[in-house]
Design a protein around this nucleic acid. Sequence first.
RNA 1: GGAGGCGUCGCCUAGUCCGGUCUAUGGCGCCCGCCUGCUAAGCGGGUUGAGGGCUCAAACCCUCUCGCGGGUUCAAAUCCCGCCGCCUCCGCCA
Length: 420
Amino acid sequence: MLDLRQIREDPDRVRASQRARGESVDVVDQLLAADESRRSSLSEFERLRAEQKSLGKLIPQASGDEKQALLAKTRELSAAVKAAEAAAAEVQQRLDELSLVPSNIVLDGVPAGGEDDYVVLREVGGKPALNTVRDHLELGEGLRAIDTERGAKVSGARFYFLTGVGAQLELGILNLALSTAVEAGFTPVITPTLVRPEVMRGTGFLGAHADEVYRLEADDLYLVGTSEVPLAGYHADEIVDLSDGPLRYAGWSACYRREAGSYGKDTRGIIRVHQFQKVEMFSYCRQEDAVDEHARLLGWEEQMLAAIEVPYRVIDVAAGDLGSSAARKFDCEAWLPSQSRWLELTSTSNCTTFQARRLGVRERADGGTRPVATLNGTLGTTRWIVAILENHQLPDGSVRVPEALRAYLGGREVLEPVTR
RNA sequence: GGAGGCGUCGCCUAGUCCGGUCUAUGGCGCCCGCCUGCUAAGCGGGUUGAGGGCUCAAACCCUCUCGCGGGUUCAAAUCCCGCCGCCUCCGCCA
């Protein structure tokens, strides 16, 4: 949700942002019109209501004819107040609906265009020179680490079992991520993975990508696709204190995604799955600190990527490929030797005040309150196994373990195929 | 699943039976001022949030806000209905 006052004062800024995303520009004028009629109908209601209240106060003291006259008068007013209130509520509802339409205003510097118009900010690390390339599933099956066949048998396509060193590898990645976060001052949090509709809506996930989200019809709850959702809801409707710096949380949770509309895409292995685990950074900070905080989140992501020793690049995602809540987004993509392409491992978004406004997260500021900024970023997921296996594979199908993860794999330096 | 209780402006709390200066009481905490070698105590004042009007801005004024949503009424914290949350007991499952 955007600030109505800002739309009123600088509608061109919002129009330009909508245009850069390839989304509706007309909604700005619809919003302005709805706001105008809301304010006039509200004034009318308030005027009538004030009159009703002041007359109502005279009634207990009045008596006889005077009282009867007052009662007759207030009866009339009562009906008028009700009508005015209903009219105001109707206009308010239209405004509320419209308010949810515009996406966040993109920040200056964000590349215009769609999915392919990202800008590469840097490339870090050299791609491995491999004579024979096995993909992560072949490697994972050899190590008895990944079992997609039984995943499909038990749960269907895009489900999997992680076994043995596969299970350990996932926990290693997540634990390393959590330790990194705690060292950086984050509060570790294990979150609910089922949330109420308001929370899901507040984080902006029920917009264009609503069909990506699992919904439990019988209980009217949603399964989260990331712990960003419960962490954003954590301080909903609260006035938070940011005087000691940002509130930083590292959420550990399972994540569920329907992957509707991605049929035939990444069908092999565990690149694109319905359920995985993730450690996610989430930060509440002052509006003016958001850009710096975003850079810090990106820094911690890169620290993790350095620790698992895979080549990666950082891209500045184009306006048309941002989620509705994000004003800017940086993705880190690891090299995927089996496909000679880049694969997204992390994503960090600056949502400025967009989510906080919907969720009612504010801070005290001279004389009143104002919305805070929220940011999020990935610190480790199940998918990282893919990049680790492929980039650290050895000619015989075994896999070198990056030093930072060895402690989580019983000190092993190399994972070897299981022959049996 | 069954029965009962509770939800008031940061926290605690009065008010709800019996509708009307409730413009929500008092305490704690916090903020400002006074007083005082300093601190504490004491004294005085302020302290929910949202929206709107006026304004360069503020002061100020108005409306809404007693878990949420409806209803009754000239008038609802108070009466009625529905929902949500929390607590206790019973049952059930670990």
